[in-house]
Design a protein around this nucleic acid. Structure first.
Length: 277
DNA sequence: AACTTCCCCAACCGCCGTTAT
DNA sequence: AATAACGGCGGTTGGGGAAGT
């Protein structure tokens, strides 16, 4: 037994939204919120399905949406994140404040995809994609498990995100991961000072991360790393850095070392989550 | 000026995972 | 446990404007 389509009800309007409809939706959500999208159009007096209302709000009317053209920095970030995350537009959007997944998807298909050389457009193998999904699920589960254990009353209400890879001291082998959340700004640096041989696959293995997680570098006796701690990791190749200071890595090395970067990225998110507990 | 083609992007569709009953 | 409802996601479409002929 299949589920009925969202807009199966007769008489519901489809297509572009009018200014009047937009205003009704904005006024309603500003007054009552959007706890129940299904019921919202009926209560607001809109001849739309809840799904259409939700899309209009999340992709266009939300007050925190940044309108206008994408900056070069944003476009570079999308390219970099796409290399790491693939077509996971919502995950990419979460890393670009003010931009929606739909917008990012559009700009990718209309502009950015064309910039890549042909041999890089399909460079992510099925195996890589599966591995990414596995790593991301593991990281997500790890964060969720950790958050479920915390006291829901006394815990800060915040979300974490690794906003960018940046370099420090103009040293291309010296990389930090900048994080932020809604209540505090964190700069969690992972300095990469020692370039090791490409054969060194131990740089980011479980031993390293468990060592980081159990670090007692800080005064904090919880066993978790503290804000401001530096962790030395060995990097098997040199990343390149754009003029804006965003670590891009060459497309080739980024793709060749996708697991490496994805590990850095997801583990940094894990650490950030732990810092906030 | 008229027509065709191309491009952009808002919106839709269908699927999936989670939650409620 | 089974089913339906719901929110969220990624893929795709199609209307409309711009560019080309």
């Amino acid at each position: 037994m299949g589920r009925a389509p969202c807009c199966a009800k007769m008489g519901l309007k489809k297509g572009p939204w009018s200014l009047e409809e937009d205003q009704i939706l904005i006024n309603y959500i500003n007054t009552y919120g959007h706890a129940n999208w299904r019921a919202l159009p009926k209560h607001a007096g809109l001849l739309r399905c809840g799904k259409s209302c939700r899309l209009r709000w999340t992709n266009y009317l939300r007050p925190d949406i940044k309108r206008g053209n994408f900056t070069k920095e944003e476009e570079d970030s999308i390219i970099n994140f796409h290399e790491m995350l693939g077509n996971r537009w919502s995950a990419i959007a979460a890393r670009l404040p003010g931009r929606t997944d739909n917008e990012i998807k559009n700009v990718w298909h209309t502009h950015l995809k064309k910039r890549l050389p042909q041999n890089q457009q399909c460079n992510v193998s099925k195996q890589d994609k599966e591995e990414i999904m596995k790593l991301d699920l593991d990281a997500t589960k790890s964060n969720q498990d950790a958050k479920q254990e915390q006291d829901p009353v006394n815990s800060p209400q915040c979300s974490s995100d690794v906003s960018s890879f940046t370099t420090s001291d103009n040293n291309e082998n010296n990389c930090s991961i900048t994080t932020s959340n809604t209540t505090n700004d964190h700069d969690m640096s992972i300095d990469i000072n020692n370039v090791d041989s490409p054969e060194n696959d131990l740089a980011l293995d479980d031993d390293f991360w468990s060592e980081v997680l159990s670090s007692d570098n800080s005064d904090d006796t919880s066993g978790f790393p503290a804000i401001g701690d530096d962790y030395q990791i060995q990097i098997p190749f040199s990343p390149t850095v754009t003029e804006e200071g965003v670590l891009s890595a060459s497309s080739l090395s980024m793709c060749d070392n996708m697991d490496f970067w994805y590990d850095v990225y997801t583990r940094a998110e894990e650490l950030t989550g732990l810092l906030e507990l």
